[in-house]
Nucleic acid binder design. Structure first.
Lengths: 267, 267
DNA sequence: GGTCGGCCATAACATAGGTTAAGGGCCTGC
DNA sequence: GCAGGCCCTTAACCTATGTTATGGCCGACC
């Protein structure tokens, strides 16, 4: 674990995250910057949070990949989601003090840490930011719900195609993919755990996608050759797309809602 | 659709919901009561929200059951969650105007309706309530994540056992179950859609649970005869239990956090 | 520079769960 | 009181996916 300090404030992950929902105001900037003063690095394969143990600080992923996963007592494991730059870990730890899931780094990672009381402070002092945070959480949930649909009703091939498209989209938003090409720092076992498949079947399924010319794999680089077809195989839903690249509507709603009286007015 | 008015404020669903996270203060009571002035009834099998269409009002389930579900273009369907009294529908519609999922009533239902702008107002004026709402959302997500674990890594028998235990617990909290007995207003087809199974296999699996003496079914009444064993079959996690009956810790956190300065202090 | 361990790959075989088909109970509407 | 529709149930069969086993590659470590 490495400690570092500071970074150009506008390059800050939380800023970028919340900024995708509304324009950050001057008075909010200082607070955000303070939240992200402490940057910590972790090597790959480190647990940032362990199922059954206490939550620590709230963490904002700044760089690198991690995974959120849950395990059954007998060791079977499900990866719930991949944690990408800008994502937040353990934000609701004020409520649940024992974690019901683990978060493990996949690559070397750098995260911003702050104590959970700061979240409460944020709710008290910066309602706009609080709303943006809550909205970000809702987006997360939508992604998990979509994966639930995958596991429940999509075949192995469809699931795999869907996940690849999802990752490509999410990574594109944070500039970590271009021309359908990105780094997938993940073993086939982890992919299998994300998709509810056995490792062997995961391998078979990737082979089918490769043989079909939809994707290419070399090492940890994956290239999507035919996004349209891949999205169609995965029955990728355009609605769900909106979630990934969120519309910037919170500003408007806040500006047209009178917070000082019981009265409400629309734009 | 039936319109009605008012109810004893403390029996109000949103009140009960948020009240499970913190003590509602006098100044907050009026606002909550106002939110729930409009009560609307709907018959069974009505869509309260339709995937691909616009969100309407925010709704708080007051009475009855509904389901949140998503469908693939070819008709395959996944039930994401069951909506029980106290649960909230469409609270983040300020952000996503098109719904990525549907909500359909299972029984006759009564809900409290209010316009989404009210949520913004709530964030601005009542940070404590806003936090409680955000926390409630996080709890929802934890339930969905746990179901993801089910679909990905539990067998049909385990999944089914797990779901029954989960429903029993959730219903017990809202006084809709006693002695392990509750009404499950749901066809086997819907259950299958919730668990990612075919209807035939759903039937087989329920039969096994009945033959094993773990549960009894007659009509829509289900009786859990051996909760301990059922929970063990479903590998029901005690951690996840905390989520369902939430600890009342938000009060403390709010009371010990100085919202008026950059400074934070713990109890 | 050999060996050990992690990961990928593929084949052969096993099975949980899907599909199709058929019948029965029960309600609802005419 | 009969027809049609919805739901539950079971049987027979099928297939997508899981399991076990084996080998090869490659990078890390001594």
């Amino acid at each position: 674990m490495t400690r570092a300090r500071a970074m150009a404030p506008s390059a800050t992950p939380l800023w970028r995250k919340l900024g995708s929902y509304l324009e950050i105001r001057d008075e909010e900037k200082g607070f955000l910057a303070e939240l992200e003063r402490t940057i910590v690095g972790h090597p790959p394969r480190t647990d940032l949070l362990r199922q059954g143990e206490r939550y620590g600080d709230v963490r904002v992923m700044r760089d690198g990949w991690a995974m959120r996963h849950k395990a059954l007592p007998d060791g079977r494991r499900q990866v719930v989601n991949f944690v990408l730059p800008g994502d937040i870990i353990g934000i609701y730890c004020n409520l649940f003090d024992i974690a019901d899931h683990s978060v493990t780094t996949l690559t070397a990672v750098s995260v911003a840490n702050f104590p959970p009381e700061r979240v409460v402070e944020l709710f008290q002092r910066f309602p706009r930011l609080a709303a943006a945070l809550a909205w970000a959480g809702a987006k997360e949930e939508a992604i998990v719900a979509e994966r639930l649909l995958s596991l429940g009703r999509r075949t192995a091939l469809e699931r795999t195609a869907h996940l690849i498209v999802e990752l490509l989209r999410r990574l594109t938003v944070v500039n970590l993919a271009e021309n359908g090409r990105f780094t997938l720092p993940v073993t086939q076992e982890i992919l299998a755990d994300a998709l509810g498949l056995s490792i062997v079947h995961m391998n078979r399924t990737l082979r089918r996608l490769r043989d079909g010319g939809l994707i290419e794999l070399n090492g940890q680089k994956i290239t999507v050759n035919d996004l349209r077809q891949l999205a169609s195989v995965g029955q990728f839903d355009e609605l769900y797309l909106h979630l990934i690249r969120a519309p910037k509507r919170l500003d408007q709603v806040f500006d047209t809602t009178r917070g000082d009286r019981g009265d409400v007015r629309l734009a």
